[in-house]
């Protein structure tokens, strides 16, 4: 038993010390219960058992597979399968519903929007942005200008077959020629037509261009697709040039650049990548962002 005269016993508290001392400060020995120690040993044994039961150690050409062949990849596949079963009822309803009826039914709309939002984040957000706000060259899907049509059926077709996606024979096609690059238009003609285009939506003439000449260039070269009045043509994906929405920007430099290099963005055909119900949900989701047309 501890004794007050023993130097290994702290005089003030009467508690034995561990014998460890630093600058005259001794560590009191207040022992832990033995069951605590055993609990600690059990956790060590447990961890060894864990190595054996589950995949644990990496090797040169593989890893230890554990006793039951469990691995996280099959676990994920299994989870996804369960998720599919869980969603099956909603999925079936969505698949059976007519595209036009989905938004009218709050339950179907919420299923479609939830599934659409997830599919959008996985597939569309890299180009169109997380909120479908778009970027230069990538249309904003929240607004009311639709290059290829904003009705449900139009959006579904665009999703299904893509835009300028040569692998799909039904893809949306129509490209703006590179008027400047291939020499069809001279520099001053481009300058004039660019300012004329700006004037269509009420933007000021910059650099004193001749709008009358610009109008003539427009009628000769651009009206075929963009229309005599510049209001565009959704059959060809030719944008309306008279409104406040500009896919590549409304600055003089941006418009002159478009006339010079032409072309247009690409969108993959999702019909062979996503199942029809997901395309349906995406269609409704995109349509609901801004109400479509």
């Amino acid at each position: 038993m501890a004794n007050a005269s023993d130097p290994r016993v702290d005089a003030r508290t009467g508690t034995p010390t561990t014998g460890h001392e630093w600058d005259g400060i001794a560590e009191l020995n207040t022992p832990l219960p033995r069951w605590w120690l055993w609990t600690f040993y059990i956790t060590i044994v447990w961890s060894i058992a864990y190595w054996i039961v589950y995949p644990a150690w990496p090797g040169i050409a593989g890893w230890t597979h554990g006793m039951f062949g469990w691995n996280s990849r099959t676990a994920v596949v299994q989870d996804l399968q369960e998720l599919k079963t869980m969603r099956a009822a909603g999925e079936a309803k969505l698949s059976a519903a007519k595209l036009e009826d989905i938004e009218k039914n709050p339950e179907l709309l919420s299923i479609a929007r939830a599934q659409g939002a997830a599919a959008f984040a996985n597939n569309c957000a890299p180009c169109h942005g997380a909120g479908a706000q778009g970027a230069v060259g990538y249309p904003n899907l929240n607004d009311d200008e639709w290059l290829w049509g904003g009705k449900l059926a139009d959006i579904q077709t665009t999703l299904q077959h893509g835009i300028r996606w040569d692998a799909d024979k039904d893809t949306r096609s129509g490209a703006m020629p590179a008027f400047g690059k291939d020499g069809t238009l001279k520099a001053d003609e481009i300058k004039n037509v660019a300012q004329y285009v700006r004037s269509l939506s009420g933007l000021p003439n910059e650099g004193g261009a001749d709008l009358a000449k610009g109008k003539k260039v427009f009628a000769d070269n651009c009206a075929a697709c963009h229309g005599d009045d510049g209001k565009g043509n959704q059959e060809l994906g030719a944008p309306n040039l008279t409104d406040k929405i500009w896919l590549y920007g409304s600055t003089t430099a941006a418009i002159e650049n478009r006339v010079t290099v032409g072309g247009g963005g690409q969108m993959p055909a999702w019909g062979d990548r996503l199942d029809p119900t997901t395309i349906k949900a995406l269609t409704v989701y995109v349509h609901s962002l801004g109400g479509g047309k």
């Binding site: 501890a2 508690t15 034995p16 561990t18 014998g19 020995n29 022992p31 832990l32 219960p33 033995r34």
Partner: peptide, 14 residues
């Protein structure tokens, strides 16, 4: 609360 341990023992039996 706890009985003092034997000298030097870091764990004590309950």
């Amino acid at each position: 609360g706890a009985a003092p341990a034997e000298d030097g023992a870091l764990y004590e039996a309950r």
